[in-house]
Design a protein around this nucleic acid. Structure first.
Length: 723
RNA sequence: GUGCGAUUAGCUCAGUGGUAGAGCGCUUCGUUGACAUCGAAGAGGUCGGAAGUUCAAUCCUUCCAUCGCACACCA
């Protein structure tokens, strides 16, 4: 009766079982989202300094892969860290219609259904693809949420929204007004399957060993790997200094017997001809070769299409017309052999052939009228901005690669012949071929010849619009977000996008606004499987983030993606490693259980023992300083690992073990130690929160008042610890 | 061809001018009153090879070997 009543333990039942990610994550995310704190306009306190990130909008044509999980994790770490540091932090989410990429995905789907895009009405095809994209978009947004992304959904933008289209149109018009846009017939990379031109960046180079043929061409022996293009070859080119051929003069005409009878050949002396290559003499096919095209341009030569858009020979090939180039090759060689014109065949000729990056079929160079952007003036400004340190790369390596590419930049073909994407607002004259940008749709006749005009049937290269993404999301030029958040703080994306996207955003951002779109570029490497192999469906080694989340929890996935992942370096994702962080989440859970178990009577303020003060000064504060140092250097990989070891090896293994007797010692020692444990727990939760937001917030929500003290209700907006 | 990077424990990878670390795997023991676990101890590496700078190099310099990536080009 006289016993002091047993202290009621203040442990929620929850902690009596291991941490179950699935039981908390959705609820926690809803808590955050409902709080409105993803939107910087709602953040508590007086926040003057801003921090902003534009999310690379994932392609809305499938599920998220490990690369998406990595960028969401890295960016969310930055966001949560800066938000806790008291900044006005905003993360702009988005979704990409992904032009050609989505078109390819959708065409595959059509193929499976036994349909073809060439048999469907354009309007219907567009609508079907749009429906497909929008349903993927909402699915994908759900996945981003599940990864814990603290982005402001109220600011989400889709790359086909009118804001984007307007910006893109205006940029095109400005480029035309400034003389940086031209329409011209140039060699383009043509994919015979996808029926579109592709930029250089969208081609792969496949190393091959092929036959190299030598033919008698009048008095010359010419070498070629592509006999099927040779029908129209009526120019024979050699280097002006080649002693072997000095008896022939530039412009000299020679009668030669060729594939389908005699033709008149003209001698051209041009330095592009390499005396070391083959016989030092070549004939040219300007319509189907970049180099030949350049030579033809220089000397004002005729050029003619030999191969059609589907890869079949045109009527110029006579008896071979209509044949696929692959079938035709051997037949043509046979015919030349029969005519006694085949000199020899070298069957060990190694070269690399350009291929479509999607279907890996050989690219057929073709001459086509396309819109080109003169990139040199834009590139110069980007390089200048880098020199001026208006922006910087986290890794020096990327900076070197960036400089190298921009210093050697070529004009950009922004026309694509697909059905999916933003249409190019232009009119083309049917009489003279003149092209005119027409964003208001008011042009009715050719400005040059008054001829009839048609609407340009082409779409933009997706990267042309993506290159203006930071302008679109911040609502350039008059939007409030543009004023507040442009230039944004960091662009975080995969290193494979440095040319495709990052460089274009910088160039077009400067071009439109005079300012770089972001101050810092953080580029992560590729995520590979546990043995360093590229993930691919055919290899069956794809790790789907959603599977990992289900099995180990989102926090474990995030830690597994971040720890030891050096910026700019590829990383291998090993489920065993992720499992280690699942255990870590549970460790944190149990640490909390221990602390709560031993602090029902904790009632601050309390006196500190000397020993406990020493712990703070010698371990806790230096650890926080160390973490802050890594965070400021963008070394989240190191910060995460340090916290992990601190929590496990120091807090749990040392401090907690040592606390067991102290908690049973004098009231002063007990109270002081309780305070230390609480302080350690709060600090651990805070510093871990950007990395493992769910478990830390789940714990935070359960902390009783005597533990939480004056801290805010939500960990997401708690103050980042100072060292 | 041009540029860039890598080579550290069985595997996958961090790291540092002063005789090496993580996760997983392996061996032994202990624990189940914070821990569907955890703890302790251990085996295992002349940090690719050679030379140089330095009191001292895995970490800096040069060369070599092997592997990889990016870009560009080819009659």
């Amino acid at each position: 009766m006289s016993d002091t009543p047993e202290q009621k333990p203040n442990i929620p039942d929850l902690f009596l079982k291991p941490y179950d990610p699935g039981a908390h994550e959705a609820e926690i995310y809803k808590l955050w989202e409902d709080s409105g704190y993803f939107n910087p306009d709602n953040l508590p306190g007086d926040r003057t300094e801003t921090f902003s990130i534009v999310m690379p909008p994932p392609n809305a044509n499938g599920s998220l892969h490990a690369g998406h999980a990595l960028f969401v994790t890295l960016q969310d770490i930055m966001m949560r860290y800066e938000r806790m540091k008291g900044k006005r932090a905003v993360w702009f989410p988005g979704a990409d219609h992904a032009g050609f990429e989505t078109q390819v995905v959708y065409e595959k789907k059509l193929e499976k259904e036994g349909r073809s895009r060439f048999e469907i009405e354009p309007e219907q095809l567009y609508q079907e693809t749009l429906d497909f994209t929008l349903s993927n978009k909402s699915f994908m947004e759900g996945q981003i949420r599940s990864l814990g992304a603290s982005c402001d959904w109220s600011r989400e933008l889709f790359t086909l929204d009118s804001r984007v289209i307007n910006t893109v149109h205006n940029t095109l018009k400005k480029l035309e007004d400034d003389g940086l846009l031209y329409r011209g017939a140039r060699i383009v990379n043509w994919c015979p399957k996808h029926q579109t031109s592709l930029s250089n960046l969208e081609t792969l180079h496949d190393e091959r060993i092929d036959k190299f043929y030598y033919f008698q061409y009048g008095p010359f022996v010419i070498g070629t790997a592509r006999p099927e293009t040779k029908f129209g070859d009526k120019y024979v080119v050699m280097h002006p200094d080649d002693e072997r051929y000095k008896e022939y003069t530039h412009g000299q005409q020679i009668e030669v017997e060729w594939i389908n009878g005699p033709i008149t050949a003209t001698v051209i002396k041009d330095e592009a001809s390499d005396p070391e290559m083959g016989s030092g003499v070549m004939t040219i096919t300007p319509w189907h070769s970049g180099i030949d095209f350049d030579i033809a341009k220089r000397h004002n030569l005729d050029y003619e299409q030999i191969i059609d858009w589907r890869g079949k020979l045109l009527p110029i090939a006579d008896e071979f017309a209509g044949l696929n180039i692959k079938e035709a090759r051997e037949l043509i060689v046979k015919k030349l052999d029969e005519k006694g014109l085949l000199v020899k065949i070298d069957d060990k000729y190694t070269h690399s052939v350009p291929c479509c990056y999607k279907c890996e079929r050989e690219i057929e160079p073709q001459v086509k009228e396309q819109w080109f952007v003169d990139m040199k003036p834009l590139a110069e400004k980007a390089l200048l901005a880098l020199d001026n340190k208006d922006f910087s790369f986290v890794t020096e390596r990327d900076e070197r690669v960036f400089r190298h590419w921009l210093s050697n930049i070529e004009d950009w073909n922004i026309s694509r012949q697909g059905f999916w994407g933003i249409s190019i607002p232009a009119k083309i004259c049917t009489a003279c071929g003149h092209g005119m940008v027409d964003i208001d749709n008011t042009i009715t006749s050719c400005a040059k010849c008054s001829g009839e005009v048609i609407v340009d049937p082409d779409k933009f290269d997706t990267w042309f619009s993506s290159g203006q993404w930071p302008l679109c999301v911040t609502d350039f030029p008059d939007g409030k977000d543009f004023k507040n958040f442009y230039p944004t703080s960091v662009m975080e994306t995969g290193k494979d996008l440095i040319f495709f996207w990052v460089s274009r955003m910088i160039m077009l951002g400067i071009y439109r606004t005079g300012e770089v779109p972001f101050k810092k570029v953080y580029m992560h490497g590729m995520v590979r499987d546990k043995h360093g192999k590229k993930m691919s469906k055919s290899k069956g080694n794809v790790i789907a983030p959603s599977d990992i989340q289900e099995k180990y929890g989102t926090d474990a996935l995030r830690m597994g993606l971040v720890v030891n992942n050096v910026p700019g370096t590829d990383m291998n994702l090993d489920p065993d490693k992720i499992n280690a962080y699942k255990k870590f989440a549970n460790k944190l859970w149990n640490i909390t259980r221990f602390v709560l178990d031993n602090t029902p009577d904790y009632n601050p303020p309390v006196d500190h023992t000397r020993e406990d003060t020493d712990y703070e000064n010698e371990y806790l504060h230096p650890m926080v300083a160390d973490i802050n140092d890594s965070m400021e250097k963008d070394r989240f990989d190191l910060a995460a690992e340090k916290i992990y070891h601190f929590v496990w090896d120091h807090f749990a293994s040392l401090v907690i073990e040592e606390s067991k007797p102290l908690l049973a010692a004098t009231p002063t020692e007990r109270a002081s130690r309780q305070r230390l444990l609480v302080y350690y727990l709060i600090t651990s939760l805070k510093t871990l929160h950007p990395f493992m937001p769910y478990v830390t917030e789940a714990i935070w929500q359960e902390l009783p008042k005597n533990i939480k003290g004056d801290e805010p209700e939500m960990l997401m907006v708690a103050k980042w610890p100072k060292n």
